[in-house]
Simulated scan of single mutants.
Amino acid sequence: MLSASQLADRLARDAEAVCRHYLSAGRRAGNYWIVGDVANSKGKSLYVHLSGPRKGRWTDAATAQYGDLLDLVRESCGLVDFRDVADEARRFLNEPRGSLVSSDRDDRLDRQPVERPAAERARRLFQMTQPLAGTLADSYLRQRGILRASLHSSLRFHPSCYYRDLVSCRTSSYPALIAAVTDQAGTVTGVHRTWLDPDGDGKARVEDPRRALGGLLGNAVRFRFPVDGPVPVMAAGEGLESMLSLSHVMPDMPVVSALTANHLAAFRPPNGCRHLYVAADADAAGRHGIEGLSRRVRTLGIMPLVLTPELGDFNEDLRRLGPDRLIANLRAQLVPEHASDFLLD
């Protein structure tokens, strides 16, 4: 049975193999493995020594994180209990499971993980993306009837976004649609990731192809929002694609996606808002989000108006019924002045 220090030494012997497995988005550069961070993002700030007396030691120059390869396993897999870290390392080394040598185990358990704030990690990820136009993510949205998504600066593409299975902790990477979650000042507080099938066949075949990261509470993914000034009329709802579908047929209306019903209920409308259209989803959670947001905005002097799809959500309406039918349904629900100002002819 190997102790913690022995496990770290064994991992260091195969440092490059460890890096290729847990930091697959990186590459070898001389005697180092270079990658963006412990979350396996593309970039150059984290480097792992592959030879010499510091073999297996790593440092992230951007965050001041450092450690050995056991620490790297812990961080990349998101593990907390060191017993789980040791089990993951033994799995990689094909060692049997078992308890650690007590003195070594206690020393490791006292070591606190260095956590980078989620909002900072989200901003870092968004900075590593590329424009949406012509990418797999643009194609994915076009397949869903959303033809002008590349006009939205809040949507970007990552060709190889880190994905960790929350059950097995195994890591991989897939292309991804990345949406920026911002506050009222336009500061990125989080991101929403939709992992995509590399062959263009919809979402990636993983357990959970959609995840958010960072500060969502009160914030949202914003489409067509002015940089400054009041926003007297806007629409808010849950799903990214549902709200993009509304924006597709109302291209000049400010629209936000709060991503979940709970976050929709907590969304903070911008200053100067007088009419807030709340896009309904046909489920109990959606009704909860609508009711919670409507109650709160009334106290702010904002009139909430509910928009209801004919089918499950507005993207389903757009894809299955077509844009003309969606426009006709919305025209019947919008204030006439808003229908003439915002709806496509």
Rank of each mutant, 00 (worst) to 15 (best):
D138F: 03
R108W: 02
P113N: 14
R91W: 13
L70T: 08
T59A: 11
E75I: 00
E95V: 08
D106F: 03
L100K: 06
D81Y: 05
Q127E: 13
L125I: 13
V48A: 02
V48T: 01
D81K: 09
Q130Y: 06
S76A: 15
W58M: 03
R83D: 04
L69R: 02
L132C: 14
Y66M: 13
K42E: 10
P131K: 01
S99T: 04
R111S: 09
A61W: 15
Y47M: 14
V73P: 01
L46M: 15
S76I: 00
R83M: 01
G52Y: 05
D110T: 04
P113Y: 03
S51G: 15
K42Y: 05
A62T: 04
D138K: 02
E115D: 12
V101C: 10
S103G: 10
R116F: 04
S45P: 01
R74I: 02
G43K: 12
T63G: 02
G52K: 15
C77I: 02
S41I: 07
E88S: 13
R121P: 01
D107F: 09
L46I: 03
M128H: 09
E120Q: 09
D81C: 14
T135I: 01
R105P: 00
S41M: 06
A86S: 14
E95I: 02
A122M: 04
R116V: 11
N40R: 11
R90I: 07
T135N: 10
D106M: 15
D71E: 06
N40T: 03
A89D: 02
R83E: 09
Q127M: 13
R111M: 15
A86Y: 09
K42M: 09
A64M: 15
R123Q: 14
S103N: 07
R108P: 01
K42Q: 15
V73R: 03
D81A: 14
W58K: 04
F92Q: 02
T63D: 08
S103M: 03
Y47N: 01
T135Q: 01
V48R: 01
R121W: 00
L109F: 07
L72P: 05
A62Y: 07
P117F: 08
E120V: 01
R124Y: 03
K55N: 11
S103P: 05
S102I: 00
P53L: 08
L100F: 10
D138N: 00
T135C: 03
G98A: 03
F126V: 06
S99P: 05
V85C: 03
A122S: 13
R83V: 05
G52M: 12
T63K: 04
S51W: 10
R90H: 04
D106G: 08
T135S: 14
K44I: 02
L132H: 02
L70W: 00
E115L: 09
V85S: 00
E115N: 08
E120C: 01
L46E: 04
A119Y: 01
E88N: 10
N94T: 12
G52E: 15
R91I: 05
N94M: 11
D110A: 15
S76K: 06
L100V: 06
E75H: 05
G56N: 04
D68F: 07
N94I: 03
S45E: 14
G43E: 00
L93C: 07
G56E: 04
L69W: 11
W58Y: 11
A118D: 12
R123H: 12
R116A: 04
V80K: 14
R97Y: 10
D138C: 06
D71Y: 05
D110Q: 14
L79G: 06
A118G: 11
S103F: 08
R57T: 12
R90G: 03
L69E: 07
V73E: 00
G98V: 08
